[in-house]
């Protein structure tokens, strides 16, 4: 069972994610974005979207740093005060994401106009996000000081997944159900990216920061056109 959940499932998700997103990006670029509904309802969206996105934004990078540089987090968390600061901050952003999400769900369910641009996959998105955020908050609350123990249980497992040598001993020994759910639903999120509005965070327009403001594109070959002496003047279209 654990093998299925922690090896087969993650790899399937990763494969689906890779193939699916590349396919969608290449062949269905028109659909690559989040179908924004701010135009239809902007007021309620403000608080909900800001809470949700900034919460997730910080948590995402927090998790990323922890997995990439576990040592740095361990060293930071050596002092109880600093551990407390880190954990509280994370929890606050977790709550922010949670309340943001609840508001978003409420808005989508109740606003007539927004309902018109809502589809089935949006509910899938809501459900996995709810599971993910609630389980995350539970882990943080019940199995306290994750930033101290994660390197024992999670890091070896995740590293083994990403170096294609899956070892599930560490994760299997975990007793916390919410932690297991948190891990599995994280992979589920990755897996459904190509089929949902999650796609939009892959195209966060970071290159805007360094591109020039104005963009001009030429369809003609600017030099070649000069030599087009042979340009035939056909019959002029009849306009009037």
């Amino acid at each position: 069972m654990d093998y299925l959940l922690f090896v087969v499932f993650p790899y399937s998700c990763l494969v689906i994610f890779l193939i699916g997103s590349i396919y969608r990006y290449k062949n269905r670029p028109f659909t690559v974005s989040s179908l924004s509904s701010q135009f239809l309802e902007g007021k309620k969206l403000f608080l909900a979207s800001q809470l949700f996105h900034w919460g997730l934004f910080v948590l995402f990078f927090g998790h990323l740093i922890a997995f990439l540089f576990p040592a740095s987090v361990i060293i930071w968390s050596e002092k109880p005060v600093r551990l407390l600061i880190l954990e509280t901050t994370a929890f606050v952003f977790g709550l922010s994401a949670f309340f943001g999400l609840v508001l978003l769900i409420y808005r989508r369910l109740t606003d007539r106009r927004v309902q018109m641009v809502t589809n089935k996959m949006d509910f899938v998105v809501f459900i996995v996000l709810l599971v993910q955020i609630i389980s995350g908050l539970l882990v943080a609350y019940t199995s306290r000081w994750g930033s101290a123990w994660f390197s024992t249980f999670l890091t070896p497992y995740l590293r083994s997944i990403f170096i294609f040598d899956p070892q599930i001993d560490a994760i299997s020994s975990v007793t916390s159900l919410s932690l297991k759910i948190h891990v599995v639903s994280a992979f589920a999120i990755i897996g459904i990216i190509p089929f949902t509005r999650f796609m939009h965070f892959l195209v966060y327009p970071i290159d805007y920061a360094w591109r020039s403001y104005q963009q001009v594109m030429w369809n003609w070959n600017r030099k070649g056109i000069r030599t087009s002496k042979a340009h035939r003047v056909g019959p002029k279209s009849k306009n009037n």
Binding site: S33, S36, H200, P205, V216
Partner: peptide
């Protein structure tokens, strides 16, 4: 053009028409 984060809007060099590439627009508005 200047405000588009995805770079979907451009001015055509030949005639200066400003267009939005629908395949590149990511709905940032």
């Amino acid at each position: 053009v200047a405000s588009c984060p995805s770079g979907a809007i451009y001015k055509r060099g030949e005639d200066g028409v400003v267009l939005i590439n629908q395949q590149v627009c990511r709905a940032w508005r």
